[in-house]
Write a protein that binds this DNA or RNA. Structure first.
Lengths: 347, 347
DNA sequence: CTGTTAGCGCATTCAA
DNA sequence: TTGAATGCGCTAACAG
């Protein structure tokens, strides 16, 4: 390790024969500094290779200029887009980012929250893990008045703004679409009902059935963790059913695709025997044959909105509280796998 | 924002009627502190809701206990695994992580490097962007003696350890496999030859041809950015070729899959007309029909090894320099799409 | 084993 | 418009 000593504002001050206080002010564009000295300071700083010491600054100012992000996983196109959206806004506002993933486990999420807390983030953006039941591990932030914003997988709390899409409506629409395509016996594969996204999609599914006069059957609602592995198991469960459904709406594309592939392996024709719909518009939805009908929503936008809301709070702009829940747009993406053969003939 | 004042080691010292220095030592498990006082200190700290101030500590110790990571993208199973592997090692060693993505652009990578530098990371783990030509933006780290380690997409520099798999060998093996399956006219779709991973896979491809007595044709080497979009364009390029290849080895699965799908859309039979192989063992390689032959390597392991190497350096353990390049294992995953019909008959 | 002392680099109050 | 002085909270000599 090496120890070329760092240039400090004192070094600049000495070179310029002015005080460190003036340098400090000049560097951060303080109004009460003459144009000229400001210019000299900035030039000298650059010439001398000065870089400000965040830690001294943070220590002094009692804030970190850092924003934390906790997400279930980073490895999806959606989350990647979310992070990219956040990063842009956050950097432009002069903040840094600490990113961590809970890997869908509360335990890890609790640890992550502690790390964020100890790192004294100025604000926190969170999408909850699969099995999180309460937000006690976030109460330390709320108590301290550190802005906490949930997005996508949210928790309702008066102190916390939430950014979501209308999962209920999307679930309703996609189920209605399957019905319009001729499905009369539709199964829904959902995730933990602790998570708003799955609960709401499920409600939308049920209401769509009801509104079209189709009775809801308990056997047609399956809850698993929406992973490829469990989706495959679910496929076998379906294969062994006496009355198989003629349509399946899965709460994410991973589940839809894996289930579909396994069923097809066992001779089920898609979409003629069973039509399929997923959620998220993952790239795989366009790779699987036939292509999957799904719901698209913009991660980038969600990230940007969440970040903007947070920064608004940090700047003491509480307009956002007027609309404590921000609901973004989504879009139904209709593809081949939900188009039953008969429907083609009718055209 | 709120300002309940934070508990400091002075508060603990006062309550316990000891000095702040002792508290500081007790908290960090200093050897020269009696079992008893240590216990009292830790209990008091917990009772009083103390949390250590990283910034004061960093300022004082002149190090940050933070490690930076710069990767092209976070949204792949591979990178996600890499990060997870790093996170575990790094946390266990008491370091924090700052993660950022270059989104495959040098410009962003340069900015990220600057941010990392200003945040005074103790060490840096990097996988290069698609079009990075030199590592001038990392020279500030090298000059300052801040350990810099490249993994996967690496740059050869005497000061920087690298963690890779044997891309040459993998390229050689997968090409040989296609040849053994009966392919006589094999195309290779590669990425930027600035990146070791693509350059080496390409070399492996060429040598495999040579060793099997197949002449290399310039028309059979296509360079694109390996995205789905460009893969589709490449497919059309192939369709318009007078003599189409009977096998294609693409340098990643995304490219292989998109190209394959587009070709099939236009009547090409896979693998009978053209056999396919990819690289990475992405989930999509198992979703596409027919499943893709590919090369698997463990992101988790690569991340862990890279992190361990870095921490070794930080602790002044330079054994690693003896093997400046660490080469991890890979594995050929043989699936249906490279198995020509004839081969089945022969069995 | 524990205490005293000093200073890391910066931002801010108060004075000028 | 600028400077002097102070302390944010912690750690590491050095001294006992």
């Amino acid at each position: 390790m090496n120890h070329h000593k760092e240039v400090t504002i004192y070094d600049i001050a000495k070179t310029l024969n002015i005080s460190a206080a003036t340098v400090s002010r000049g560097l951060k564009d303080h109004p009460a500094i003459s144009k000229n000295t400001k210019k000299r300071i900035i030039e000298a700083a650059k010439a001398m290779g000065y870089r400000s010491n965040t830690f001294a600054s943070n220590l002094r100012r009692q804030r970190t200029n850092t924003i934390g992000i906790i997400v279930p996983r980073l490895n999806s196109t959606f989350m990647s887009d979310v992070i990219a959206g956040m990063e842009k806004i956050v950097n432009d506002a002069g903040y840094n980012l600490i990113i961590s993933q809970s890997l869908e486990s509360v335990e890890k999420e609790i640890k992550n929250a502690a790390t964020m807390f100890n790192n004294r983030v100025d604000g926190l953006l969170v999408s909850l893990a699969y099995n999180t039941e309460n937000i006690n591990h976030f109460s330390q932030f709320i108590k301290k008045g550190i802005p906490l914003i949930f997005f996508d997988r949210v928790y309702e709390h008066p102190a916390c703004p939430t950014i979501v899409i209308n999962n209920y409506k999307a679930g309703y629409e996609i189920t209605s679409h399957l019905i319009e395509q001729g499905c009369k016996d539709i199964m829904h594969i959902s995730g933990s009902q602790l998570r708003n996204v799955y609960l709401q999609r499920c409600k939308g599914y049920k209401d769509a059935l009801a509104d079209h006069g189709i009775p809801f059957k308990n056997n047609n609602l399956i809850i698993n963790n929406l992973s490829a592995t469990e989706a495959t198991q679910t496929a076998h469960q379906i294969l062994s059913m006496p009355d198989r459904p003629d349509g399946i709406f899965a709460a994410n594309d991973t589940c839809a695709v894996s289930c579909m592939i396994e069923l097809r392996k066992h001779g089920v024709r898609i979409p003629d025997d069973i039509a399929f719909a997923g959620f998220n518009n993952d790239p795989i939805s366009q790779i699987v044959e036939p292509n999957l009908t799904t719901v698209d929503y913009k991660g980038n936008e969600m990230g940007a909105v969440a970040a903007r809301t947070l920064i608004g709070h940090l700047n003491g702009n509480f307009d956002f509280l007027l609309t404590n829940t921000l609901m973004l747009r989504h879009e139904l993406i209709i593809r081949e796998s939900s188009l039953k053969k008969e429907m083609f003939y009718e055209q």
